[in-house]
Amino acid sequence: MTQLRTWILDLQQVVDTLPGPLQMLAVLLIGMIPFLEGDVAATIGVVAGIHWLPSIVLGVTGTVVVTFLVLSSLGRFGRPRDNRWAEHKVMRRVEQWGVPIGMLISGFLFSVPVTVFIMGAAGLRRPTVLISALAVAVLNGTVAGLLSAGILQWVIDI
Rank of each mutant, 00 (worst) to 15 (best):
3 Q>F: 12
4 L>C: 12
4 L>H: 13
5 R>Q: 15
7 W>Y: 13
8 I>Y: 04
8 I>S: 07
13 Q>L: 08
16 D>S: 13
18 L>Q: 15
20 G>A: 13
20 G>D: 15
21 P>D: 09
22 L>V: 15
22 L>C: 14
23 Q>N: 08
23 Q>H: 04
25 L>W: 08
28 L>E: 06
32 M>Y: 04
34 P>Q: 10
36 L>E: 10
38 G>N: 01
39 D>V: 02
39 D>S: 10
41 A>N: 03
41 A>L: 04
41 A>H: 00
43 T>S: 05
45 G>L: 06
47 V>E: 05
47 V>A: 01
48 A>C: 05
49 G>T: 05
49 G>P: 05
50 I>W: 01
51 H>S: 09
51 H>D: 15
54 P>M: 05
54 P>L: 03
61 T>W: 02
62 G>Q: 01
65 V>G: 02
66 V>M: 04
66 V>T: 14
68 F>Q: 05
68 F>C: 02
69 L>H: 10
71 L>I: 04
74 L>N: 06
75 G>H: 08
76 R>C: 07
76 R>S: 13
77 F>E: 00
79 R>C: 00
81 R>P: 07
84 R>E: 14
86 A>S: 12
87 E>C: 09
89 K>V: 13
90 V>M: 05
91 M>P: 07
92 R>Y: 07
93 R>W: 12
94 V>D: 03
96 Q>A: 11
98 G>E: 14
100 P>V: 14
100 P>K: 08
101 I>C: 12
102 G>D: 10
102 G>V: 07
102 G>Q: 11
105 I>Y: 11
106 S>M: 14
109 L>W: 04
109 L>M: 13
111 S>M: 07
111 S>T: 09
112 V>C: 10
112 V>W: 10
114 V>L: 10
119 M>R: 02
120 G>F: 01
121 A>R: 06
122 A>G: 11
122 A>H: 05
122 A>Y: 06
123 G>H: 02
124 L>V: 02
124 L>S: 01
124 L>N: 02
125 R>E: 00
129 V>D: 00
131 I>S: 06
133 A>R: 03
135 A>D: 09
135 A>L: 15
138 V>F: 07
141 G>T: 11
141 G>F: 03
141 G>Q: 03
143 V>H: 03
143 V>I: 15
143 V>R: 05
145 G>H: 02
146 L>A: 04
146 L>N: 02
147 L>F: 13
147 L>W: 13
149 A>D: 14
150 G>N: 12
151 I>C: 05
152 L>D: 15
154 W>Y: 14
156 I>W: 08
156 I>N: 13
157 D>G: 07
